[in-house]
């Protein structure tokens, strides 16, 4: 049996890969409930992370020829990212559980050696109360770091704090 190759940081020059089009998951014409996910990334001093790479994956709606399910976005000079995608529905969890609608998020940047992984849930979603992952987080303030809140008609905001008092809950992956 082999051992998986070690990760290394994406570094400050990963933008050579960047294609801003990848932040719009509806660019191939996917139809459904179109939403925006926006947020600001800050470090342990509250400083903006302006060289980050944010990746998004969602198992719902299922990826197909017009909906890639995957997006990538650079944080800008204000530490902000912005995705356009389709609102996910619930997906099965382990056993007979159901997971509330959510998006999977990777955070990669200079100074991050192994990607940080988290999820974005949606405020006001009734299924959140029974979600198997949210249910593991006892502290309501910590749980709230994974819940995007509506800031516009179809815009949801979830800020990411890499370190500190309001540190985002990151998930083992």
């Amino acid at each position: 049996m082999s051992i998986a190759t070690a990760a290394q940081t994406i570094g400050p020059y990963w933008h050579l890969l960047d294609d801003p089009a990848l932040a719009d998951l509806t660019r191939f014409g996917a139809t459904g409930e179109r939403i925006e996910l926006v947020g600001t990334v800050r470090d342990g001093d509250g400083e903006l992370v302006t060289d980050g790479c944010i990746e998004l994956w969602q198992p719902s709606p299922a990826a197909d020829d017009v909906f890639p399910g995957f997006g990538r976005c650079a944080t800008d000079a204000h530490g902000r990212f912005r995705f356009i995608t389709l609102k996910p529905g619930p997906v099965p969890g382990r056993g007979n559980t159901l997971q509330a609608p959510h998006l999977a998020i990777n955070i990669l940047a200079r100074g991050i050696l192994t990607r940080l992984y988290t999820r974005a849930y949606f405020e006001g979603e009734p299924l959140n109360a029974a979600d198997p992952l949210l249910g593991l987080i006892e502290d309501p303030a910590r749980r709230a770091t994974l819940i995007a809140r509506p800031v516009g008609l179809a815009t949801w905001q979830m800020d990411i704090r890499l370190q500190g008092n309001d540190e985002t809950v990151f998930i083992e992956v």
């Binding site: 940081t9 470090d43 342990g44 001093d45 400083e47 992370v49 994956w57 969602q58 198992p59 997906v91 099965p92 969890g93 382990r94 997971q99 959510h102 999977a104 940047a109 200079r110 100074g111 991050i112 050696l113 940080l116 992984y117 999820r119 198997p132 992952l133 593991l136 987080i137 890499l162 370190q163 500190g164 540190e167 985002t168 809950v169 990151f170 998930i171 083992e172 992956v173």
Partner: peptide, 21 residues
């Protein structure tokens, strides 16, 4: 690696078995 100092989480990551996500 200096850039890690303010960019590494202090909390342990939440253990959660992989799902379809």
């Amino acid at each position: 690696y200096g850039s890690t100092r303010k960019r590494h989480p202090l909390h342990r990551p939440l253990a959660f078995a992989h799902t379809v996500t």
